[in-house]
């Protein structure tokens, strides 16, 4: 269960202060699929980064499965992040020097999963994403869709409670985009909470709830039945 209350995020430079989030209140239930939409610069990615424990809010509270995390250090956040949150990015963010298999294996290495179990989990994730035949390829040798499937395999390999997806289809053609959205839906159907930032109303249509942001505030929420 994710619960945020009166969350603010202000970015300061020497001369300018920019308010990215301005008093956000939001709850996400277990197993929910939430899409966050809004124009460029409205604070979607900032919100997703804070939800993903990649950044701290300037103000407000954030409860992640019962633990208050808003004021945690990077080290403490890293400890919670691993194993609990999976990430899928628009630009895939695979490590170019590692193969498909090694990229997917990475989160398990930081979780110190034993080798045999690691192998089993990586292979299961790759099989599920239909990427086993490409396991020894490097990211540059893959199509965009294949890279994103690899990224999703990496996000799910440690069976996290939550997956955060930042415009997961933004760099894909419609066919590959559809495939990725279907995969995310399947994961959600299997019980994983999904929070997704998107510009695409079509992709948002896969979510249970759509949250619209504007100038750092939630302006509308729409629940799909």
């Amino acid at each position: 269960m994710i619960k945020i209350a009166n969350m603010h995020k202000v970015f300061s430079t020497e001369e300018v202060e920019t308010t990215a989030l301005n008093g956000i209140d939001m709850d996400v239930r277990d197993g929910e699929f939430v899409a966050i939409m809004g124009p460029s610069g409205c604070g979607k990615s900032t919100l997703l980064n804070i939800l993903g424990l990649l950044d701290n809010p300037s103000e407000g509270s954030y409860e992640f499965y019962g633990t208050e995390v808003a004021k945690m250090s990077e080290r403490q956040r890293a400890q919670i992040r691993k194993g609990n949150i999976g990430f899928v990015f628009q630009s895939f963010n695979l490590i170019d020097e590692l193969t498909v298999y090694e990229n997917v294996e990475l989160p398990l290495l930081y979780l110190k999963t034993p080798p045999a179990e690691r192998k089993e989990k990586v292979e299961a994730a790759l099989t599920r994403m239909n990427m086993m035949h490409r396991r020894n390829h490097f990211p540059q040798q893959l199509s965009g869709g294949q890279q994103q499937r690899t990224a999703i395999a990496r996000a799910v390999v440690a069976t996290p409670k939550t997956i955060l997806a930042d415009e997961p289809t933004g760099n894909l053609d419609s066919k590959n985009g559809e495939e990725v959205m279907n995969l995310l839906s399947q994961l959600n159907a299997a019980g994983t909470t999904i929070l997704m930032v998107t510009h695409s109303p079509y992709d948002a249509g896969f979510a249970h709830r759509i949250v619209n942001l504007f100038d750092g505030k939630i302006v509308t929420e729409k629940v799909h039945v």
Partner: peptide
């Protein structure tokens, strides 16, 4: 930097 960021996202601590 991308690799560093990703490793951090995946749970790498500073000492790693």
């Amino acid at each position: 930097s991308k690799e560093v960021g990703l490793r951090k996202v995946m749970g790498a601590l500073r000492n790693h």
